[in-house]
Structures are given as structure tokens and as C-alpha cells.
Amino acid sequence: MAIEPDALDRTGLELAAMLRQLRRQAGLSGARLAARCNMSQSKVSRIEGNRVRPSLVDVEQILKGLGVSPAVAAEAMAMARIAQTEWQDRKALHRKGLDKKQLELAGLEAATTDFRFFLLSMVTGLLSTPEYIRASILNAPPTQQAKAVSMKLERQAVLLDRSKRFTFILTEQAVRYPLVAPDAMAAQIDHISSLARQANITISLLPSSVRYSDTPLSTFTVYDQRLATIETDLGAAVFRDPRDVRSLLDRFAFYEDQAVTGDAAQEWLSRWAWSFRN
């Protein structure tokens, strides 16, 4: 799933311009269209001015109110689906403050029951030791690091909530990436192994000997069946369209079928921890 931040911004502008042009072609004022859509005139104005991100339902209501052809509606909905994808630039997040991002994640985790994590290259903060977390944010502004570590560790309390279910799929690369010294890496892998024994946590592994994809991969997380994120080195894309979320759920299920879990996963973790100790 290719992610191009500039394309996301362009699509939002193009969708706003398209909806504005369609309204004018229909000979409707903003007020008349709003009345047809059971929507406020100010909301219609903000959507047409690209000052608010319309939901798919919003776009469907507007297109229905305009009475456009099926072909035009399909084109507009395709654009709306792309525009619904939110891009979070990593540099901008650092400027905004890592604490803001941690609060956002904590709120999302509090509202989620079923978590699915596919970890491609590194271990996520929820599974990390303090030393691993500190090493993972060294590129952040020094003034933010201590608070970010503290907030990441506080977020780990969500794993103790037995009403929530966590499934983690980790590649061998993610588990064994030498972010910290060998003894600390062994402790990090032992930590993952211990968490795998919790009833509400499933740890599945994809050893490098297992062929599980012919396409480029990205780290991604699915929260229930309502929202998903894909992470790259540049930032993260947030998907809310049910079709995008469903696509990632299907991909996760496929990886899960290829992965090892239970006692077999524990054996792999023990072997990898031993390799760092020796």
C-alpha cells in the first residue's frame, strides 16, 4: 500500500474543488444544498473550502443532494476515500512534542478492545524495556526524551487490562534488531517472552526462514475494526475507511497463518536471546 503524503494533500484540494464545481453546475446555493443534505451551510462551506476533512458519509450526502450520475459519484467517492487518509509527519510530530503523541495513543488505546500489531523492523513501545525505549527515541529533541520515556512506560499499563486483547506479529528482524547492547537485547527478548504468557497477549513470530510476502512491507496497527495506521520512516498514515481497515485485517490474518506462536515462538525467542548472551 503506497503512501504519498503530497498526493493525500492534493486529493483533499481536488475533492473540495470538485464538490464546489458540481454544486455550481447544479445551480444550487450552499444553503439549498445544505438543506437537501440535512447539513449546516457553514459545514458545506468548510468542505468546499478544504477547511475540514469530510467523512465518506458527508460526501455521499452531498452527492445525493446534487443528484450526480453514478460515474461522477464513483469518481468523487474514490477521491474522498484517499482524502480520508490522514498523514502524520514525523518531523512535525517532534516539533509538536512527543508527549502530545503519547497522549493521543493513550486515548486511542483506552477506546480499543482488540489490537493487532504487525512489527516489521523494531519492537513497539508496549513491548519494550526502559533501556530499549530510551534508545528508540534518541533522535527526538533532548528536552522531550525523559518525559516521552515516562509516558511510554505508563502506557504499558493497558496490557494489564484483561478486557483487552493484544496480538503482536513480529518479524525476526524486529526482535533481533540490535538497538541496544547485547545484554540489554537479551533482556528485551526475555521481556517479550514473559509478556507472551499473559492470557490476553498473543506473540507470533515470522522467522527469516519463513517466506510470507513478495511485496514491500510496512509496520501497521489495527484498532478494533475502525481505524488503522501504517508507519514509515517519514511518518504515519491513519486510515478510517472500512475498506482500508478490512484490507489490513486480511493482510494481518495472512501473516498470522504463516507465523509461529505458543511453545514454538518461545523456543525461537529463547534461541535469539541466547545468541545475544553469547
Rank of each mutant, 00 (worst) to 15 (best):
G49L: 09
L8E: 01
I169R: 02
S213G: 00
N139M: 13
E172P: 02
A265N: 00
C37W: 03
T215L: 15
Q188F: 01
R162M: 11
R271M: 12
I62R: 05
A174L: 04
D250M: 09
L33A: 06
Q61A: 10
L234Q: 08
F118T: 00
A184V: 12
P141Y: 03
M122R: 13
E60F: 12
T11L: 03
G67I: 03
N139E: 14
Y177A: 11
N139I: 11
T124V: 06
Q173L: 14
K91W: 14
L159Y: 01
Y177Q: 11
R24L: 15
Q25V: 10
A184F: 13
V180P: 03
M77K: 09
L234D: 11
A7T: 10
V238N: 06
L93V: 14
L63Y: 04
L127K: 01
A187E: 06
L13Q: 13
Q173G: 13
A237I: 01
F239E: 05
D9L: 11
M79T: 04
E131R: 01
A140H: 05
A236E: 13
L227H: 12
F118Q: 00
A17N: 11
S247R: 15
L217F: 09
A174G: 08
T232S: 00
Q25R: 10
S194G: 12
P54S: 00
H94I: 10
L28I: 05
E231D: 05
R46L: 01
A31I: 06
R51Q: 04
S55I: 09
F115Y: 03
C37P: 00
P141R: 01
M1S: 10
N278L: 12
A237P: 04
S163N: 14
K164I: 10
K43R: 02
R271G: 10
E154A: 12
R53P: 02
K152Q: 15
I189E: 00
H94P: 07
D263Q: 14
K43N: 04
S121W: 07
D214P: 09
P54L: 04
E267R: 15
L108E: 11
D58A: 08
S40F: 03
F252H: 05
F252P: 01
A80Q: 02
K101Y: 13
E60Y: 08
A174V: 01
A34F: 00
T143M: 06
E48I: 00
